[in-house]
Amino acid sequence: MGEAVSLYKNVWEKGHFVDTLSIVAGLHGDHLNGLHLVSLLSRFLQDVEDGRLPGFRIAGKIQLFPMVNIQAVMEGERLWSFDNLDLDLAFPGSSCGELADRLCNVLYKHTADSNYALLLDASEKRCVSIPHIQLLQPDRSLRRAARYLAGEIPGGGPDRFPGLGIVRELQPTPAFQLRLYNQWIENNVCALVLAGGRSAGIDPETNGALLANVVNFMLAVGVLAHATRKAEKGEARFYSLENERRVSASHPGLFLPEARVGESLRQGRKLGELRDIYSGETLEELFAPQDGLLLTLRDYPLVYQNETVATLLVEKERRWYWPFS
């Protein structure tokens, strides 16, 4: 009906022959944590450009895409509703296709030549998870980049989140090649996914802390500089698929959690229980199958039979990377 569909980006740039970092949020309309983190980054970078943060200066090109799936965000939905389309399964898109294809293609073209890229993603639907980094088949440079994004979250700690030191290796699936992140990797962009939190919600305290991690990352890759401060490598723990243990519900019903994400669990620790909706009877108690870190926990209480309610990271082949400089 004549309303424009626009894709906005905020850009800070110093010089022409510089490295570029692209940060993308809001591929799904319910990934609100990413939107919030980008808004914090925008304010920070504008303060840098305006000289309100002494010592910092823009040293490269930084472009932030706060809200890609505008239609879904406006509707409060996850997907691009006009086509029932998961926008993160539509890359690289097409310059001559339908609107969603064109939007994906524009975003891809604006970011595919970047040296570095960050995709801000939420947890799995109806779950909450600790903030963590995701990588696809990481080589040395990706691992190195992850260590600069990793680091303790001030105000986190054992009672809250264990820090952004968790790095999961993603598992490629047939549909994975249609994701923006995979397109970046295929285009040799040093790209990482920053995931976590819960969908359809914002955690301002954690986002405020994550801002420091992203600033450290920007210092490390050289798009941001500081007169005295240098980027610091954080401690990262790399987990492959073999290190993940999913706990599923044998019964359907109401899931009442007892454990909290980020908690280091001992084998046998109760994760929660399933209750029958009609009788209130306990159908099943769910326990940690072995020692591990609780990465993801069901946040929405209604559960289908065989659904995953928790994911643990276990230390089967734990590899530590210390912050050697």
């Binding site: 996850r78 997907l79 029932n84 998961d86 399964l89 799995e124 639907k125 598992q171 699936t173 047939p174 549909a175 999913r246 289908y304 039979q305 065989n306 659904e307 995953t308």
Partner: peptide, 18 residues
Amino acid sequence: FFSVDMNRLMGEPAGNSL
């Protein structure tokens, strides 16, 4: 409930989701 397209899930490992 899951908002997923079944015809984009074929070939995925079973453990990923219901």
